[in-house]
Design a protein around this nucleic acid. Structure first.
Lengths: 241, 241
DNA sequence: CGTGTTTTTGACTTCAGTCAATTAAAGTGG
DNA sequence: CCACTTTAATTGACTGAAGTCAAAAACACG
């Protein structure tokens, strides 16, 4: 398998956003055994209750992790893009406590659990990079707790737009101030803990007040600083080196 | 340092809730260099923006991690009890994105960052246990996103009471259906994303409707199953083995 | 005891949800 | 390429859960 053609190249790219890795370490990651799989939009990559045997890295497309609550609602608890490990969570822990769903058509690399554990402990730098990614993911989840717990609708939505912008750019998938948001307003609602109707009104307000310019799914951020301000957005929690 | 008297005994106990560790591995954890420190209630163990040089395991008492949002509110994003690693997060990542505050008088063990990294890679079982704990913590954060994002007040509060009950019992610090909740109603409010007034009304309602019996800070759960039901509580996400 | 939290309660407000209908966009098959 | 469906976005009128403000009661503690 040639390095640059490995399906795991996006994973390496993302890990480098938070950790240093030698050429050798990078090559070792690229050389991990894996199987590429296509998944159509809205299909499930994993389901709550699964006991997965493989870890899964996103090669292209977008996916979310979500939970279903008793009252029938759903809450999106993570958004994933190319290069993200989608379920280290599901791999080291015995049982999935949430589902992973493709938002768009998606390509994933399935990596045997064993291979992840081996590389993590044979190559400490790689192990540490994966661990750091796990921590960063936890950090993002905590920021989301604060976002849905203590911010009003406008701030919440603006915050999401900012986070997505920065992560996209870090993943090399778009520009921070001009990108495609691959989500319906209903999916945004399930992410920020609002209803789709209110998300609609809020997005509209952000447009009207000149923070953004949207058409279809495309988002143009007119003034990053101003949007970051209404969104109470401080990128520290993303832990990009 | 004798094993049973090591300040790190609670840490080992907690790790065993999610991972298997040989006697040898356990001894190695207990033997990590560390310094015990007392911290009075409400003091800070770490502050947002710190660049910590030590990791910190809780030996006794309770602590929270919280974030401050622009509008002046605060959101508690984690609750910690004896045996929890309070800031692996802060230790492997460069910069703390939240503060850690003692809820009660607290004893912590400060462990040099280096020592954590060494043991993690010299003893894969220990490294994996720490990693699993990191993942479990992320899992709890995700459940909190769902709790705050998609559940109503009564459900949220009941869920918190259930989570606390289970974690206390797992940590060997109390009984699942009869424990002391070391938080004011205002702190509960900052945890579940409500106001203290509404938390008061909600706790009262749970009492009136017979789910719980409270006096001061003590909580008695009359019927676990019923409370878990209104709280939409499924302990899977805690990932106790 | 007195002072300062914490808990409780009541009256009123508001932000976001609900319900329902309309418009716009994106597919689909002939 | 056009009628036909389906999904997504938008808008308006009304509701309701939780927030705000303010004051009283109950504790906790030096």
């Amino acid at each position: 398998m040639q390095n640059t053609s490995s399906g795991l190249a996006p994973l390496v790219r993302q890990l480098l956003n938070r950790s240093k890795l030698t050429e050798e370490d990078q090559a070792a990651i690229l050389a991990m055994p894996h199987q590429v799989k296509q998944i159509p939009a809205l299909n499930y990559i994993a389901r709550e209750g699964d006991r997965p045997t493989h870890s899964c890295a996103l090669i292209s497309g977008f996916a979310v992790r979500h939970k279903t609550v008793g009252a029938g609602g759903r809450q999106i608890v993570n958004i994933h893009m190319a290069g993200d490990m989608v379920d280290l969570q599901n791999s080291l822990l015995a049982c999935a406590d949430h589902s992973v769903q493709a938002l768009t058509k998606v390509e994933v690399a399935l990596i045997p659990r064993q291979a992840i554990e081996e590389i993590a402990f044979e190559r400490p730098a790689v192990g540490k990079a994966l661990w750091v990614d796990t921590l960063a993911e936890g950090s993002i989840a905590r920021e989301w707790v604060a976002n849905v717990g203590r911010r009003d609708a406008k701030t919440r939505v603006a915050h999401l737009l900012c986070e997505f912008a920065m992560r996209l750019e870090a993943a090399g998938l778009g520009q921070q101030c001009n990108y495609e948001l691959p989500m319906t307003q209903e999916q945004i609602a399930d992410t920020v803990g609002l209803t789709s109707v209110h998300v609609n009104r809020t997005l509209r307000a952000l447009d009207t007040e000149g923070y953004t310019k949207r058409s279809k799914r495309s988002v143009v951020i007119n003034d990053w600083k101003r949007l970051a301000e209404v969104g109470d957005f401080n990128p520290l929690y993303l832990h990009f080196a």
